[in-house]
Design a protein around this nucleic acid. Structure first.
Length: 210
DNA sequence: AACGGGATGGTT
DNA sequence: ACCATCCCGTTG
């Protein structure tokens, strides 16, 4: 499988363990900058470096889907850390990873990637060739990587998962990272729970936020 | 059963 | 700034 081939290519690369996601949600959101998101779906492997995330803090956060109470949609958010929470919105999908301890209802939304592998596949799935627009925005990532409701509840720390994350040693310093208000939310819009790589051209949102 | 809003994104 | 499109939670 392509995943094995990639893992063998460098000993520094390793899959992020469950323990990583059990940390406080903002810590996870910040630490995910620089990590690599992989998808092996439909015989194609695609990958990209995470350059933008957002933290959603359960009952502490009115913009979080799990802030009020448990519903069928948000069920997996109350489960184990390291599980994918994929929800549909405006006929598209967004990909999150559950954090902290079970029953907390917290997650990190992956908002933008810098393409690294399977660019042609992602171009085909997105129906465009412009690299800059390939994986900028949460729904664009899902379309490029074929992530849909089938992935909801999948454990991204499991080996042989359809979706997983790796650490290749890339780290963005405090100077290289920015912390701003989130994009698209109407409630709790003042909260600085968005993390992004300063100046990275694959980051979403208004230019002033980059 | 009906309704309204949304963690979007592409176009005007 | 507008709106296509559709799922989900709420209300009746």
């Amino acid at each position: 499988m392509a995943k094995q081939k990639f893992l063998e290519s460098s000993e520094r690369f390793f899959q992020l363990p469950k323990k990583f996601y059990q940390q406080e949600t903002r810590v996870v959101a910040r630490a995910l900058l620089g990590k690599v998101l992989f998808s092996s779906i439909g015989a194609s492997v695609t990958a990209g470096r995470i350059v933008e995330t957002e933290a959603y803090l359960s009952e502490r956060d009115l913009a979080c889907h799990a802030s009020k109470h448990r519903t069928p949609r948000t069920e997996v958010m109350f489960g184990r850390a390291g599980v994918a929470y994929v929800y549909p919105i405006h006929a598209k999908y967004c990909f999150n990873i559950v954090t902290e301890e079970p029953d907390r209802g917290c997650a990190v939304l992956i908002r933008a990637l810098e393409p690294m592998q399977g660019v042609e596949t992602m171009q085909r799935r997105r129906g465009l060739t412009d690299i800059r627009r390939l994986t900028t925005g949460p729904a664009c990532i899902c379309q490029a990587m074929s992530i849909d409701r089938e992935i909801n509840g999948a454990d991204v720390t499991r080996s042989n998962s359809f979706v997983w994350l790796e650490d290749d040693g890339t780290f963005f310093s405090q100077k290289e990272a920015i912390n701003t208000i989130r994009i698209g939310v109407t409630s709790a819009k003042h909260r600085k729970l968005r993390f992004a790589v300063r100046g990275n051209s694959f980051v979403s949102g208004p230019l002033r936020m980059r």
